[in-house]
């Protein structure tokens, strides 16, 4: 009997794992944004002395993981599992990072939903009694993503207003079976939702239904309402996705307007930094969660947060074949108090 399951898609962790430490590394543009004071390392140059953007992304993820382990007062020998993923083909960033770290490794692909996918699996592994300390991490890099998914950097094209800006950055979380919180208490795992959006420049519109599906299922499964949360934050829906989510959630009977935000909107100043609909990428939810949300929870300014990282699970090849974008959203409840 799976006695930790509640409702259709949610698990309630009976011994909620605690976050022991986090770390974030971000690129120069993110380091100029509104959340700059929450990041551990801000790069002056997004190549970071490496010879390619991909290698730079590996270094960014590796440093974020090492720094998180250090911030948790542990050494990498103490870590039993590493859960990580990224956007690049065959998740090379994560695998090349794991090559340096010597930690047993599960590579994940959840596109931009990877932060909550890794937190979900890490937390369940601990609660299941299979590990005491794990690291959950993910990263993205504007320039490595741009060349894989869009056009060369020096190509002169215009970005539509619905387009988002891939965050250069990595975030890592150390989870442990005991600690002083914040704790991971509930996990709602998303289903693939696809309403047939094909426009790769409108990720927010494509992913919003997945977030709506997961958030409303979370409320149904747990019995919570929006008022139980200090913050409900999606990964990278951006301005277009935010509008859709607030509007359609209201039609579902949930008014989120007081508690809702989006990592992609928080990380950049859309007007000043010309990022159009906001940030995106695995790194977006990762650095906003491991930087801003975690630190605000330690200060008790936020006590109960629902983090819903959203992912668009497509590839340039299948998009050219005319397929629409399958999307997913995983929700994780992070709580300062456990009963």
């Amino acid at each position: 009997m799976a006695e930790k399951r509640i409702g259709l898609q949610t698990v309630k962790l009976s011994n909620p794992p605690s976050i022991l430490g986090t770390a974030t590394v971000v690129g120069p543009k993110e380091g100029e944004g509104p959340l700059k004071d929450y990041f551990d390392i801000i790069l002056e140059d997004d190549m970071w002395g490496q010879e390619s953007f991909e290698k730079s992304e590996v270094k960014i993820q590796e440093e974020a993981i090492k720094q998180a382990i250090f911030n948790a007062n542990l050494s990498s020998k103490d870590i039993e599992y590493l859960f990580s993923g990224d956007l690049l083909n065959q998740i090379i960033t994560s695998s090349f990072t794991a090559r340096q770290l010597n930690i047993p490794y599960f590579g994940l692909y959840g596109a931009c939903s990877t932060m909550t996918e890794s937190l979900s699996l890490g937390a369940m592994i601990i609660d299941g009694g299979f590990a005491d300390k794990v690291v959950c991490a993910t990263s993205s890099h504007f320039s490595s993503a741009e060349r894989q998914f869009r056009f060369p950097l020096e190509y002169g094209s215009q970005r539509p207003f619905s387009a988002q800006w891939t965050v250069t950055g990595a975030g890592a979380t150390v989870l442990a079976s005991s600690g002083n919180g914040p704790y991971i208490t509930y996990i709602t795992t998303g289903k693939i939702v696809d309403f047939g959006i094909k426009d790769a420049n409108n990720m927010g519109g494509a992913m919003a239904p997945a977030a709506i599906d997961t958030i409303s299922q979370h409320f149904k499964d747990t019995g919570y309402s929006p008022d139980d949360y200090d913050l409900i934050i999606t990964g990278d829906l951006g301005l277009v996705g935010k509008r859709i989510l607030l509007d359609l959630m209201k039609k579902e009977g949930y008014d989120l307007s007081k508690v809702y935000s989006d990592c992609g909107i928080k990380i950049f100043d859309g007007v000043e930094q010309d990022t159009h609909a906001g940030g995106s990428g695995c790194g977006c939810a990762a650095v906003v969660f491991n930087g801003y949300i975690y630190k605000e929870m330690l200060k008790k300014n936020l006590n109960k947060v629902l983090l819903v990282a959203t992912g668009a699970l497509h590839s340039p090849i299948i998009t050219l074949q005319g397929e629409s974008i399958p999307c997913i959203a995983h929700a994780v409840t992070i709580d300062n108090l456990i009963d």
Binding site: P160, F161, G196, G205, D213, V240, R243, I244
Partner: peptide
């Protein structure tokens, strides 16, 4: 979301995109 089919949603989402200048 159950009361919306794919076509309706696509139309709806299209309307939420800011128009180019």
């Amino acid at each position: 979301m159950d009361n919306m089919n794919n076509k309706e949603y696509q139309k709806y989402a299209e309307r939420k995109i800011p128009k180019p200048t």
